[in-house]
Design a protein around this nucleic acid. Sequence first.
DNA 1: ATTGACCTTCCAGTTACTGGAGGAACTAAG
DNA 2: CTTAGTTCCTCCAGTAACTGGAAGGTCAAT
Lengths: 134, 134
Amino acid sequence: MNIKEASARTNLPAKTIRYYEDIGLVQPDRNANGYRAFEESDIHKLAFIGRARGLGFTVEECRTLLHLYEDTTRTSAEVKSIARDHLSRIDQRIAEMKEMRKTLAHLVSCCAGDDRPNCPILDSLAADQSVKSG
Amino acid sequence: MNIKEASARTNLPAKTIRYYEDIGLVQPDRNANGYRAFEESDIHKLAFIGRARGLGFTVEECRTLLHLYEDTTRTSAEVKSIARDHLSRIDQRIAEMKEMRKTLAHLVSCCAGDDRPNCPILDSLAADQSVKSG
DNA sequence: ATTGACCTTCCAGTTACTGGAGGAACTAAG
DNA sequence: CTTAGTTCCTCCAGTAACTGGAAGGTCAAT
């Protein structure tokens, strides 16, 4: 199957599939004309990667997960460890974003949003209290 | 003041300050020896940028906010609009992350994490139901 | 004169793609 | 057989926001 169909089957842009080949995540065969020839196993791998990426795993984690998937001597502990690390990164990131959200929502609610120049958002960004004096 | 002190005063790495100069966010003077000479106004700007970045605004938004800050003919509506856009991006991102978190936490809780190869995390990533049949 | 801290510029690398140029190949119609 | 349109190929460059490091100049103190 050509790249377009592979793309349709996996919901990954063709560009992305070529990129994944570039970095060695998949190795599709080539036809005589040089076109990539995707097999079901390639589609399966790409879909695996697509789902892992959708859960926020980095491409390198995807590579590792793929290796583990193909290594029948793996232990579920190895996989769980990667997933748990990722989960805690997500939790941390969510906490950071919530903190930003809180501050930002407050500032937005304080701002009149009219045609006058006075603006508590700018005031807050310009606030000198967080500039160390020296 | 030299870059090291500017860095200490703003909590921005010297590298980052140089980068901000590169992209035209600040224009510190130079001493005869070529060293950057930061004034209070530069520190103020850098701190402003640092705070805006801390709230997750992009560097280009920081540039715009800085312009608005320095433009006394601005309207608070302009500022609020930028902040509101950013807030909704944050909300969207938080929602995505929570969705990931939910799925991931479920998978992690299902995985034994022992020395056996069987792993529901990998099973889920490999699940064929989301690969379109063709 | 020398050490060590600090400063400079410039180049390259990071993450995960994405866009586009330039050109070859396949498909279908006339 | 030619033409047009679509798909494919590779390669180069750009994105965001820095970060690391090399090579070398400057400064303060000994």
